[in-house]
Design a protein around this nucleic acid. Structure first.
Lengths: 121, 121
DNA sequence: CTGTATCCCCTATGATACTG
DNA sequence: CAGTATCATAGGGGATACAG
């Protein structure tokens, strides 16, 4: 879910939010950044399954969208830190609710597997 | 963002939520269903830019994930209604926050276009 | 009215190797 | 350490036509 052009007219602003946080790894990245500033390799350990390349790409988009800040230290070996911008922190309540809802969703899946034939309603 | 297999181990439950609501049109569909039950063609009018095919596909996935209920009436011409399940309604607070955040995000984009050179921080 | 069925394309993502 | 560069691919998504 690459963000669209700036002048794109969102039919509904939920769409806009999804454009920012809807990428394959973005939710998880943002979630971990809520805890505080992280270095690139820290994130790589935290965001299980995400390749180095994808981590870079998703971070770049989050940066472009103004929710993540990238800080490069002029050191050898290189040191780069990622953190939420103030605007990015305004996503925190959403991320927390998403985590909670996700927990309940996963529980439901487990339950559903034990009780076969019981659907939703 | 097709939902993964039921036994998939999410590294972080934010991921699970994004799997359910992160599809190209899902957020918008769910948002409109918050307002109440809608027929297929109503949704098609509401979800601007979504093709008939995509609307069908996304609705099917939302149904499979247990957040949307599909009701078929045995009539001619056919009548099909979509609504949120009870579980789906538990997404409402998230969707509302996403709408609000999206509004602020879009405002920021507009502002950014007028003040060129002013970045985030 | 509410969908399927095809065809097709492009982009998001992955795997792997290389670098300042 | 923190990335690029390349190559490859699945499938998400669009356009269009057809159907019960």
């Amino acid at each position: 879910m690459q963000s669209r052009q700036y002048d794109y007219r969102y039919g509904c602003s939920v769409e806009a939010t999804l454009d920012v946080i809807g990428g394959r790894w973005k939710g998880v990245i943002l979630f971990h950044l809520m805890e505080g500033t992280k270095r690139f390799n820290e994130l790589q350990r935290l965001v299980q399954g995400c390749t180095q390349r994808m981590l870079t790409l998703q971070l770049r988009e989050l940066e472009k969208d103004g929710v993540v800040k990238r800080t490069v230290y002029a050191e050898v070996p290189p040191k780069v830190e990622y953190s939420l911008t103030e605007f990015g922190r305004s996503l925190e309540p959403i991320l927390l609710m998403m985590r909670d809802w996700g927990d309940r969703y996963v529980s439901q899946l487990v339950e559903q597997k034990s009780k076969v034939g019981v659907g939703f309603d």
